[in-house]
Structure formats: structure tokens, C-alpha cells
């Protein structure tokens, strides 16, 4: 029987599948193209989306370490452990290291799977709980977090699709 929990999970799988389709075939130049000097590029956006899923699931809700740290992805991608994306300057976005998007997706696959597993383990009463998000210095409701993850990740997907459309046109 389908449930409202399934709506959240199917939404997450929908955006993630669409993200992979949307970046398919883009060249390294296209992945780093910034339409305006302060715009994010696709490569940075995809990396940031992976960080977002990882942090919400593994640190904020589950109270443990991000996979970024515990599985050594920061090291593999050659970035500082505290690098997350939120609040970065245009210079930091522009100077994002030239990592292979395939490697980012290896990390993202793990982060996405861990997010879905975290949700699988949640029952209705869990959604009434609050957890403390240290990096925002805020107590947040788990139910709110689930809606927010979908809203935030999908926004970034929309941006990636929009940039691709600017580069390649309507059916590109």
C-alpha cells in the first residue's frame, strides 16, 4: 500500500534520477560554465547537493559522522572536511577543484542511499522529534527536514537543468 512516506521516497528517487539524466554527456567546460560571475556552476551544484543529503541524513538526523568524513570522501575528492558549500563566496565556487563528476556521483550514490535508509527507519512518531543542526545552530523538526530536503535538492536540480538549457538550448 502506498503511503505518504512513499511520496517522500519516490520524490527523492525522482529528483536523483533526473539529476543524472540532466548532466549526461556534458563536457568538463559545460560543467563549469557560469552564466554570470556570481552564478554557481553545475559541477559545484552537484557536489553541494551530495553534501546536503549526506549532512542531513548522517549528521543532523542520525547524529553521527557524515560519510564525507567517515568514508574518506573529503580526502578522495581532495577537499577540506568542513567544506559544504553553504555560504561560499563566488571565488570559492569559481575555484572549485577540477574533480571528475563521476567521482562526485560515487559519493552522491552513497549519500543518497544513506538518506533513503534513514527515512526507511523513520516512523510517524519520529517525525515529531526535533534534532539540533549544529552548523545552523538551530533545533529542527524531523518532519520539516524531510520536506526541506526535497525542496532544497529539487531547487538545485532545477538550476542544473536551467544551466544545461542555456548552454544547449531547448532539446539539448
Amino acid at each position: 500500500m502506498s503511503t505518504f512516506k512513499d511520496s517522500i521516497k519516490s520524490g527523492l528517487n525522482e529528483y536523483y534520477g533526473k539529476l543524472k539524466q540532466t548532466v549526461e554527456g556534458l563536457t568538463p567546460e559545460e560543467l563549469r560554465w557560469q552564466p554570470a560571475p556570481e552564478s554557481n556552476h553545475i559541477l559545484w551544484t552537484v557536489w553541494h547537493m551530495a553534501r546536503v543529503s549526506d549532512r542531513w541524513a548522517n549528521a543532523t538526523v542520525l547524529g553521527g559522522d557524515e560519510l564525507w568524513i567517515s568514508e574518506g570522501w573529503a580526502e578522495r575528492l581532495g577537499m577540506p572536511v568542513e567544506k559544504y558549500g553553504r555560504g561560499e563566496t563566488p571565488e570559492q565556487v569559481r575555484d572549485f577543484p577540477q574533480v571528475d563528476i563521476g567521482l562526485i556521483f560515487e559519493y552522491f550514490d552513497k549519500a543518497h542511499a544513506s538518506l533513503l535508509a534513514m527515512i526507511d527507519d523513520l516512523d510517524e512518531p519520529d517525525l515529531a522529534r526535533d534534532v539540533y543542526a549544529a552548523y545552523r545552530d538551530e533545533s529542527l523538526n524531523i518532519g520539516w527536514i524531510l520536506g526541506h530536503i526535497l525542496a532544497e535538492e529539487s531547487q538545485h536540480l532545477g538550476q542544473v537543468a536551467y544551466i544545461r538549457g542555456m548552454i544547449r538550448g531547448f532539446d539539448g
Binding site: D6, G11, G147, L150, S154
Partner: peptide, 18 residues
């Protein structure tokens, strides 16, 4: 209908991001 609800969130938030 379950899929539709998830889809509405994903589609609309994409456009918000744009």
C-alpha cells in the same frame, strides 16, 4: 497519487530554484 505528491514537490521546487 502517492507518486503525484512526491512529483509535485520535485517539479515545483525545481522551478523555484530556477
Amino acid at each position: 497519487w502517492s507518486w503525484i505528491l512526491g512529483h509535485v514537490l520535485v517539479e515545483e521546487a525545481q522551478h523555484l530554484g530556477q
